[in-house]
Amino acid sequence: VKVFRALYTFEPRTPDELYFEEGDIIYITDMSDTNWWKGTSKGRTGLIPSNYVAEQ
Rank of each mutant, 00 (worst) to 15 (best):
V1R: 10
V1W: 13
V1E: 11
K2R: 15
V3E: 09
V3R: 10
F4A: 05
F4G: 02
F4S: 01
R5A: 07
R5Y: 15
R5V: 15
R5L: 13
R5I: 15
A6L: 03
A6D: 01
L7V: 08
L7G: 03
L7I: 12
L7Q: 04
L7C: 11
L7D: 02
Y8F: 12
Y8S: 08
F10K: 05
F10T: 07
E11S: 12
E11F: 15
R13K: 12
T14M: 09
T14D: 08
P15A: 12
P15Q: 10
D16K: 11
L18C: 02
Y19F: 13
F20Y: 01
F20A: 04
F20I: 11
E21S: 10
E21P: 02
E21V: 10
E21M: 09
E22N: 05
G23M: 02
G23T: 02
G23R: 03
D24I: 04
I26R: 00
I26P: 00
I28C: 02
I28T: 00
I28W: 00
T29S: 12
T29R: 05
T29K: 06
D30V: 04
D30N: 07
M31Q: 13
S32W: 06
D33W: 04
D33T: 07
D33K: 06
D33P: 04
T34E: 14
N35G: 12
W36L: 07
W37P: 01
W37G: 00
K38M: 15
K38L: 15
G39W: 01
G39H: 01
G39K: 00
G39I: 03
G39A: 10
T40Y: 15
S41G: 04
S41W: 05
S41C: 15
S41D: 02
K42Y: 08
G43A: 04
R44Y: 07
R44G: 10
R44C: 09
T45F: 14
T45H: 13
T45D: 08
G46M: 01
L47T: 06
I48W: 03
I48V: 15
I48N: 00
S50E: 03
N51V: 09
N51E: 11
N51D: 13
N51C: 15
Y52L: 10
A54S: 13
A54P: 01
A54L: 12
A54D: 08
E55V: 12
E55T: 09
Q56Y: 15
